Amino acid sequence: MITHVVLLKFKPGVSADSAAAREAHAAMCALPAKVPLIKAWKCGFNTTPDVSGWDYVLVSGFDSREALEAYFDHPDHLKVVALWEPISDLAFGDLDG
């Protein structure tokens, strides 16, 4: 199992209540139904009120490195990325096992 973790930080002027953030969140929540490669999925707005914290968190799981890499190129994933790119900065990491 590969665990893929994504952290998103809103750009200035964007908040969790904005229409763009809500649209991106809804699209993110819909991905597991569209991408069968996803084996585990939990996403949402950060609930810890700290200015150092990231605003949005995704923790996902894939059966293999190959499945994760195929997910990166999946058209539905790319559509979601296109929603997040204008409103946030991204950090991510992957864990084997």
Rank of each mutant, 00 (worst) to 15 (best):
D89W: 10
S18F: 10
A82I: 07
W84R: 08
A27N: 04
W41C: 01
L31S: 11
P32Y: 02
T48Y: 13
A26P: 06
S88P: 06
E66I: 12
A30W: 02
D55A: 03
L7K: 01
K42I: 09
A16V: 03
V6Q: 01
I38H: 00
E66W: 09
G13D: 01
A91P: 00
I87G: 09
K9W: 00
V6P: 01
A27T: 05
F10R: 10
V14M: 13
H25E: 12
D50E: 12
E23H: 07
L83D: 01
A91V: 11
P36H: 06
W54Q: 07
K11S: 07
D94T: 03
K42E: 15
D89F: 11
L95Y: 11
A16K: 12
V80H: 08
V5F: 02
L31E: 12
V5G: 00
I38W: 01
D73L: 15
P86E: 09
H74T: 10
V81Y: 03
Y56K: 03
M28Y: 04
K42R: 15
W54P: 00
A30P: 05
D17V: 01
A67P: 01
W41D: 03
L8T: 01
L58V: 15
D96S: 14
A70E: 13
K11F: 04
S18C: 12
M1V: 08
A67I: 02
T47C: 10
K34Y: 02
A27D: 02
A19R: 11
P32F: 04
A40H: 13
F92D: 15
A40I: 03
V80M: 12
C29M: 14
D17W: 08
P49S: 12
R65P: 06
G97N: 10
T3F: 11
P86R: 13
V35K: 02
G93S: 08
L90C: 09
D50P: 06
W54F: 11
V6S: 05
V6H: 03
S64W: 07
H77M: 08
G44H: 00
D89Q: 14
L90M: 15
